[in-house]
Design a protein around this nucleic acid. Sequence first.
DNA 1: CTCATATACAACCATTTGATTGTAGGTTAC
DNA 2: GTAACCTACAATCAAATGGTTGTATATGAG
Lengths: 119, 119
Amino acid sequence: MVVYESVSDETDRIFHALADATRRDIVVRVVQRGQSVSTLAERYAMSFAAVQKHVAVLERAHLIVKERRGREQIVHGNPDTLRKATVLLQHYEELWRYRAQSISDILSEDVTVKQEGES
Amino acid sequence: MVVYESVSDETDRIFHALADATRRDIVVRVVQRGQSVSTLAERYAMSFAAVQKHVAVLERAHLIVKERRGREQIVHGNPDTLRKATVLLQHYEELWRYRAQSISDILSEDVTVKQEGES
DNA sequence: CTCATATACAACCATTTGATTGTAGGTTAC
DNA sequence: GTAACCTACAATCAAATGGTTGTATATGAG
């Protein structure tokens, strides 16, 4: 069975990765300074393996990257992916602003437009 | 059983709500123009109840609001919450940009991303 | 070489999620 | 009033999540 790798899957992963306080905290820390997985793990009240899983979720979303250094893996933040998410949200906000501009048009022609086809 | 409502829960809900392509599509649609739940439901290849649940997730995250109009519920986008998420991500990017400089200054005036005392 | 450290990963379990169907209540149209 | 429509919500179920412990592997220190 073919599994499609769509754009939304990428976006899904980014937002899902950010939907957890521990993972957001990891992002904040490593975006400022690379840190080993075990250094990170010391900070949280959960097992090393649990933190490792959180790091893996962030890695799958490309919010962080790992760089091997000796026997350690240094976790670095990836601002490009953060930027991608920010831009998407800004786009949503733009849709709102555009809507506010054309509010009079919407009110004047009170028609329900059905767009058939996709999805 | 008492369930605490911490600040990060709010952020969790926002990002979790955005971590699904159907829900993001709903946001895009209603941010431009309010639509009834059933109008939205027509667009997606799933049951009405499923769409209703997606709307409920977005509502819990305050990304949308519902306004009763006759027998319909009109779903509207809430740009304030979108803005909240955007600002948070921008803060993360800022941390990256200024990581070489005085990081403590940034943290002191900022987001209180962590150190949540589980209020 | 030996030992402690750092990471990876599998197996397991409880809870949550995402979807379904079915039922019920409220509102509009006829 | 009756019928059709819109929404809400409960029950159910498979799959995913988030945590655990245990085991394996690789690297660095002595």
